[in-house]
């Protein structure tokens, strides 16, 4: 069954075959993980959202008409659920704003991970970028993740996010500039 094409797997999943769905998940797990973890950071929340992506796909499989590729379709679900999660976290944060701002604590964590003295040794370690990514506002982060990490081109990114290509390009430019500023602000050099 592992050698089945995506189309055949989808057909079996429509018939509620768990075995086929397991193979499907294993085939696309890494793709969804890249999107969700880069959007939300590594942790239980990203894992939960990742699970939710596949559950949504399974429950709404009849809505998948094959107009876009499965990868693009899953990425769209992953991006939407990640943005929802970020909004939820933002609301949660603003609710507890009176109880003290924890941004200093976050900065401290960030500095520990990306200590300049060890940065040069770990420049290959993308964890630093991941931490910096988490400081970007969601709409910029989404474009940066899709374009540079997922490797979608501008047209595909605009289709996934349902925004004009010009907006993708401007957000991309702002996102990169912001990322550079964040890394420079922390005193990183290579």
């Amino acid at each position: 069954m592992k050698n089945l094409s995506d189309e055949n797997l989808i057909e079996l999943i429509r018939q509620r075959s768990h075995q086929a769905f397991k193979i499907f998940i294993e085939r696309y797990e890494k793709k969804v993980a890249n999107t969700v973890i880069n959007m939300l950071g590594n942790g239980d929340v990203a894992d939960d959202v990742g699970q939710e992506v596949f559950i949504r796909f399974y429950n709404n499989i009849n809505q998948f008409k094959g107009k876009s590729s499965i990868g693009t379709y899953l990425t769209r679900i992953a991006i939407n659920l990640s943005i929802n999660e970020l909004k939820r976290q933002q609301i949660k944060k603003s609710r507890f704003v009176f109880w003290g701002n924890n941004s200093e604590e976050e900065d401290e964590k960030f500095n520990k991970i990306a200590d300049p003295t060890i940065f040069t040794e770990r420049v290959e370690n993308a964890d630093i970028v991941n931490k910096a990514l988490q400081k970007l506002e969601p709409k910029l982060k989404t474009v940066v993740v899709l374009r540079f990490i997922e490797g979608y081109d501008t047209r595909e990114t605009s289709e996934i996010l349902e925004i004009p290509q010009g907006t993708v390009l401007s957000r991309l430019s702002r996102g990169l500039q912001k990322l550079k500023e964040i890394l420079l602000k922390e005193g990183y050099e290579i």
């Binding site: 797990e29 969804v32 973890i37 993308a126 890394l183």
Partner: peptide, 28 residues
Amino acid sequence: KITEEDVKRLLKQNNNKEFKSFFSTRVL
């Protein structure tokens, strides 16, 4: 100093994320 190209390069290296073990089993 970090340039935009460095940022792009670092971002490209960031595509090896994985969920915890037994992900598919947990979803099922």
